[in-house]
Amino acid sequence: MEQPIAAAGLTKTFGDFTAVDGIDLTIEPGESFAMLGPNGAGKSSTMRMVSTVSPITSGSLRIFGMDPHVDGPAIRDRLGVVAQENNLDDELSVVENIILYGRYFGLSWKEARAKATELLGFAQLEDRADARVTSLSGGMKRRLAIARALVNDPDLVLLDEPTTGLDPQARHLLWQRLYELKERGVTLLLTTHYMDEAEQLADRLVVMDHGTIVAQGAPAELIAEHVTREVLEVRYPPEAEIDLESLGLRLESLTDRILIYTDDGEATMTELVNSGRTPSSSLVRRASLEDVFLALTGRRLVE
């Protein structure tokens, strides 16, 4: 198969505002790829360009080797798009949403019905087939949106913040479905501002900030490259004046706590206690992509 996505110097501006600032991006067939970044990093603008509904300002973009400006319909024939905002058809039932969407892709009624039955199974919505969309929970709606996006057996599925606004249980259920897609060899491109989502689903990812790519690689690689294996989180009472700088540790001060990057959290803790800097609370954890983002930009992903 051709490369699902190949972008070079891809740029998108709205008036004076540069949403995407010359990014390079290639995604291989079967890959599961994430764009991680805070709101306004340029993820959604990139998604909209890839889904061919937003013309690129400059640079080049090829989807399956085709130019989105010229071959929009042919490209979309092979795409499945799950938009950030819920855009299901509230006036139709669950199963009708999938069938009619299939019709837009040129499926016959028979094919569309068969496909809808299959996808309702995939989305675990069989018993809600005739329910109205308005009666579904947020998680169910998102699973339906994903099922609907699969009606044309897409080679590339785009998911814009698929789990934003969902409760933890619904998120895990959704991740399961996406993981199954990945196992089937479908190429996935997702945006997220949750580092755990990127770690769970992505083979490879880019970290975006202010329209540019600030780092890329596999989740484990990025952690190894930019932060230490473990993070020690400590809190001190607000009035305490503790000097940690002189210990030569790598620090990141947040409003309510201090992060200490270290390869051995327990050992560093002992060092703090022995030097009379015992914190009021402490926690040792594995470093995450959140820490990578913090280390690269000095800001947190979710404010």
């Binding site: 319909p73 042919a74 979309r76 855009n87 058809d89 969407y101 837009y104 996006a149």
Partner: peptide, 14 residues
């Protein structure tokens, strides 16, 4: 409001 047209634009329709 409903994003119906937006959703259809992700299909081969123009």
């Amino acid at each position: 409001e409903s994003g119906t047209f937006e959703a259809i634009l992700f299909t081969p329709l123009r």
